[in-house]
Deep mutational scan, measured.
Amino acid sequence: KLETFPLDVLVNTAAEDLPRGVDPSRKENHLSDEDFKAVFGMTRSAFANLPLWKQQNLKKEKGLF
C-alpha cells in the first residue's frame, strides 16, 4: 500500500514540491480512503470505472492533476 498524505500536501502542488515517492500523475493514489471519498464523492472503485477522460477532468477540477 502506498503512503498517504493529507489533502493540502497534494492539492495544487507542483511535481517538484510533492513528497518523495509521489507520482505527480497519480496524486489521488496517495489520499486516504476517507479523503478520496470526500474529494471525489465516490469510492476508488467507482472512480476507476469512469472513462479516463472523466477521471482526468475530475482530477483537474479538484487540483489533483
Results as ranks from 00 to 15, higher is better:
T43H: 08
S32Q: 04
L10W: 01
G41L: 09
F5I: 07
H30S: 08
S25C: 15
L52E: 12
S45I: 14
E16A: 12
L7D: 02
E61P: 01
S25L: 15
L18I: 05
Q56V: 14
M42P: 00
K27M: 15
L7G: 02
T43R: 05
R44L: 04
T43M: 07
S45E: 14
N12T: 07
P51M: 02
K59L: 08
N29Y: 11
L31C: 02
L64S: 02
V11R: 13
D33M: 05
G63P: 01
Q56A: 13
Q56Y: 11
L2Y: 15
E28P: 03
E16W: 02
L64Y: 06
L18W: 05
Q55E: 00
T43D: 13
D23F: 03
K37E: 15
T4A: 08
A48V: 09
T13H: 07
N29K: 11
A15Y: 11
T4W: 12
G63C: 08
A15F: 10
L52Y: 13
N12Y: 06
N57F: 12
V11W: 06
S25H: 15
E16K: 12
V39C: 12
F5C: 05
D23H: 06
E16F: 02
F40N: 00
D23T: 05
L2H: 13
D17M: 10
L31I: 08
F40S: 00
N57K: 14
E61Y: 06
N57L: 14
L7Q: 04
K54N: 09
V22T: 03
A15M: 11
K27W: 05
D33G: 04
G21S: 09
L52M: 12
H30G: 03
P6Y: 02
A15D: 15
T4P: 07
G21Y: 07
D23E: 06
S25D: 14
T13S: 13
K27F: 05
S32Y: 02
G41S: 08
L50N: 00
D33R: 03
V9M: 14
A15R: 11
G63H: 05
D8W: 15
E28A: 02
P24M: 07
S25R: 12
K62Y: 09
L2V: 14
L7H: 04
L31E: 01
A15Q: 10
A38K: 12
K60Q: 11
P6E: 06
L10G: 03
R44W: 04
L50C: 03
P24T: 06
S45D: 13
N12M: 08
S25A: 15
D23I: 05
L2K: 11
Q56W: 10
F5T: 02
K62I: 08
F5D: 02
D35V: 08
F47Y: 06
V9P: 02
E16T: 09
K62M: 08
G21Q: 08
V39P: 00
A46T: 11
T4M: 08
S25W: 11
N29D: 15
G41T: 04
T43G: 09
K27V: 15
K1S: 12
F36N: 00
K1M: 13
V39W: 04
D17H: 10
S45L: 13
P51T: 05
A48R: 12
K59C: 06
S45V: 13
Q55Y: 01
S45W: 12
K59Q: 03
D17R: 08
L10I: 05
L58M: 12
T43F: 06
K27Q: 05
K60T: 09
S25V: 09
D33V: 06
P24D: 06
T13I: 11
R26F: 12
F36W: 02
V11S: 07
L7E: 03
L2C: 14
L50V: 02
L58A: 05
N49Q: 14
G63V: 01
E28G: 01
D17C: 15
N49S: 14
D35M: 06
N49I: 12
A48T: 10
D8S: 14
A46K: 10
P19W: 01
L7T: 04
R26I: 05
L10H: 05
T43A: 09
R44G: 01
K37Q: 15
E3S: 09
K60A: 11
G63S: 04
D8G: 09
L52I: 12
F65M: 14
G63R: 05
S25M: 15
K59F: 05
K62W: 06
K62C: 08
A14P: 13
D33I: 05
N12A: 08
E61T: 09
E3L: 13
M42D: 00
N49G: 12
Q55N: 00
K60M: 12
E34D: 12
F65A: 15
P51N: 04
L18M: 06
L31Q: 01
G41E: 11
F5P: 02
L7P: 06
A38E: 13
A14C: 14
L18K: 02
P6A: 07
T13R: 10
P51F: 01
V39N: 02
P19Q: 03
S32K: 06
L2W: 15
Q56E: 13
A48N: 12
W53G: 08
L31H: 01
T43C: 08
V11D: 03
V22Y: 03
N29C: 12
G63Y: 05
E28C: 04
H30L: 05
L64F: 09
D33W: 04
D33A: 07
H30K: 02
S45C: 14
G21P: 05
A38S: 12
T43K: 06
E3G: 08
L58D: 01
E28T: 03
N12H: 10
K59I: 06
R26D: 04
E28F: 04
E34Y: 10
A38L: 14
E3Y: 07
L50Q: 05
